[in-house]
Design a protein around this nucleic acid. Structure first.
Lengths: 233, 233
DNA sequence: TTATTGTCCGTAATTAGTTCA
DNA sequence: ATGAACTAATTACGGACAATA
């Protein structure tokens, strides 16, 4: 029902200025902004087919919905903005999932490589005692090592190319000083995990006191205190 | 009087209703909205020390700046929101950098493993023709394989744990069917790269026609058309 | 219990700066 | 080079929710 609905400042009044009204009825009324569900639905549908509106359809839509063309235009602008930030959120969780996936693949790959190295060592020199598991430290090109010499503790200088600067934000790419991957990047974000702090909320890291959550360096340099870009933007 | 900044609807008038006013001075004046630089500066400073302020200081600050307490409160809310989304952006680029780093480490690790496998094979049976390079497909626990048996084409079922559901958004974690890492996740986002499509813009993936960018599956399932959560949210 | 207060969220609308036909 | 349309950043509002008095 929501009797209110319309509201529309109409073509003749370019500004709405919904003052007073203050002491509104508790429930209904819907005295001011917030387009009606049908208006929203139409706009949404339109947006799905084209995120930008040609003047043609803008006018038409505005007439149909009883809104000013300006309002339709603004709605589309805001919608695009909202959409972009939603996009970012989605991309983020996908990227995080991919990262976690890759990380565990990395771990198993490392184990496999270790296994191969051990086998190789056994074949190479069956008499050696199995203390430090040996591996290559090579770059993949220098494969044909003579025979028995390994450098212990591989993965040390794996790829030097990562050390280029990151002028973007003064961000320093994190050079993976040790070769353990820090396991899951952020626990895959099931809502149940955050729920200890604040039960009903679907957002990502946001919360009133999320600052206290990642205290053990899960993010390595992000999301803990505040640093670099946050203020002074 | 006070043609300048102030505006403040004052304590007596809870609503502002700034219509007309239209014909404004070109440069100065700053008609309505937009607090003055000093107000902003104070607010910003305050925010830096405490992102949420107790009613005590809210009042004081409001008096100092000639704003309604409500405005101060709202400014802080909005600021917190802006800050969070900035945070997300930062986290995203860090995560992407880490992903790229990990990906290239993964590549070199894979090469190294391959190299070991080849060596092993050579030692194992020097007479065999070097067709399919053999590897383990094992899970890391079953390391001590008898000796000569390899399964060609490793990495197939590397980690089954990734296939748990992702109820969050209906997002399907992307199971890495092939073992090539797709190289750089998104080219490290130097502004110069985007500049082919739209020169001056610092945002992340946003652009009017960014849809045409990742045509070969860089994001695998993100950022190409639109799917799941975007509309119908 | 209900009423108050504070927070976050989604969103409408405004402003300033940029782009383009 | 003027103006229409866009973007990004802001200001502001109302509703949902939680803690509290």
């Amino acid at each position: 029902m929501f009797s209110g609905g319309e509201y529309s400042p109409s073509e003749t009044e370019p500004f709405s200025c919904l003052n007073s009204v203050t002491a509104s009825r508790k429930k209904k009324n819907k005295n001011k902004r917030r387009f009606s569900d049908e208006q929203i639905k139409s706009l949404e549908t339109m947006f799905k087919s084209e995120t930008r509106l040609e003047p043609r359809k803008k006018m038409q839509l505005a007439r149909e919905l009883g809104l000013q063309p300006r309002q339709v235009a603004i709605w589309f602008q805001n919608k695009r903005a909202r959409w972009r930030s939603k996009q970012l959120e989605g991309d983020y969780s996908i990227l995080r999932a991919n990262y976690n996936s890759l990380a565990s693949q990395f771990e198993t790959l490392k184990k496999e490589k270790q296994a191969l190295a051990i086998q190789l060592q056994k074949l190479n020199d069956p008499m050696k005692k199995p203390g430090e598991e040996g591996e290559f430290s090579g770059q993949g090109a220098a494969v044909n090592r003579s025979e028995g010499e390994y450098t212990t503790k591989g993965e040390s200088d794996m790829n030097p190319r990562l050390s280029n600067e990151q002028p973007e934000h003064g961000l320093g790419v994190l050079s993976y000083e040790d070769n353990s991957i820090k396991a899951e990047y952020f626990e895959l974000e099931e809502p149940n995990i955050m729920s200890m702090v604040e039960p009903a909320d679907g957002s990502l890291t946001s919360q009133e006191d999320w600052v206290s959550l990642d205290s053990d360096g899960l993010f390595d340099q992000s999301s803990s205190g505040y640093q670099w870009w946050d203020f002074w933007a």
